[in-house]
């Protein structure tokens, strides 16, 4: 009787642990996202994160004002609006940190930048980098299908 009880307890404990794991999987598959603050997770085929960042920046008229290992200080200077974002990177991810946003084109500068402009420009920056990563992913996928075939 004692053995049955303790076996049943163990099964119950395992089921509870298992449910927690399953819900974790589902939680991971139902993430919450932000417009541009989430990190971009990198796969091994992204061997030069700084390169994809710069490709993305170029696409949307951002420029690098300073670069140190693991960080690119990016600036957008457009019609009097100046945005600065630090783009951090390592082999596993790229992530963003807003530094400043200023409107020098108003009557009494500096003024605030409207959030909708910030949203558009920062989303553009992120999409530019994501596009460069997507292109690398396609190359990697092509290589896996056509070039890495095992010998018969």
């Amino acid at each position: 009787m004692k053995n049955i009880k303790s076996t049943l307890s163990s099964l119950l404990l395992a089921a509870t642990l298992g449910c927690t794991l399953v819900s974790q999987v589902h939680a991971e598959t139902s993430q919450s996202f932000t417009l541009y603050d989430d990190p971009l997770l990198l796969r091994p085929y992204v061997t030069e994160p700084a390169k994809v960042i710069k490709l993305g920046m170029n696409q949307y008229q951002w420029r690098s004002v300073n670069q140190t290992p693991g960080k690119i200080e990016a600036e957008l200077d457009y019609k009097g609006y100046v945005l600065r974002v630090d783009i951090h990177y390592n082999s596993e991810k790229i992530w963003f940190k807003a530094i400043s946003s200023v409107n020098n084109g108003c009557k009494k500068p500096p003024c605030e930048v409207e959030q909708r402009h910030i949203d558009r420009w920062r989303t553009g920056l992120r999409r530019g980098i994501a596009k460069a990563i997507t292109d690398l992913a396609v190359k990697d996928a092509y290589q896996q299908v056509y070039l890495d075939k095992p010998e018969p």
Binding site: T7, S10, L11, A14, V25, T29
Partner: peptide
Amino acid sequence: RHQFAALALGLSAALLSATVSAA
């Protein structure tokens, strides 16, 4: 031994279902 086996069995079943759900 029975408890350990039950624990292992339960966890394996749960993990399997977790893996199967992402396909």
